[in-house]
Amino acid sequence: MDEEIDVSDVDIVFAYATKYSTERGIYLTELSRKLLDLKSGARVVTIDKRLQGPFNLISTVLDPNGDLQTSTGFLWQRQ
Rank of each mutant, 00 (worst) to 15 (best):
R43N: 06
R24Q: 12
V45S: 00
L36G: 02
F55W: 12
D6K: 08
Q77L: 05
Y16T: 08
S59N: 09
S59F: 02
P54E: 01
Q77G: 09
Y16Q: 08
L51F: 02
R33L: 06
L35P: 06
W76A: 02
I5S: 01
G41A: 03
E30C: 04
D37V: 04
T70R: 15
E3L: 09
L38G: 01
S71T: 14
R33A: 05
T29Q: 10
T60S: 02
S59L: 12
K34S: 11
K49M: 13
P54L: 00
Q52F: 07
Q69R: 15
R43P: 01
A15P: 03
E4R: 06
Q52N: 15
R24C: 07
A15T: 04
T18L: 00
L62V: 15
V45I: 14
L62M: 07
I12Q: 11
V10T: 11
V61Y: 05
R43E: 05
Q79T: 14
L38A: 01
N65A: 11
L57T: 09
V13F: 05
L57N: 00
R78K: 15
P64E: 05
R50V: 13
S8G: 06
T60D: 00
S40C: 09
G41I: 10
L38R: 00
R43T: 09
V61K: 04
Q79Y: 11
A15D: 01
I26N: 06
R50C: 13
L62Q: 09
T60Y: 00
A42C: 09
L51E: 02
L51C: 03
S40Q: 12
Q79K: 14
R33H: 09
G25N: 13
K34D: 08
K49H: 05
Q77P: 12
G73N: 04
A42P: 13
L51S: 02
T46M: 07
L51H: 00
T60E: 11
T72S: 02
M1G: 15
V7W: 01
L38N: 00
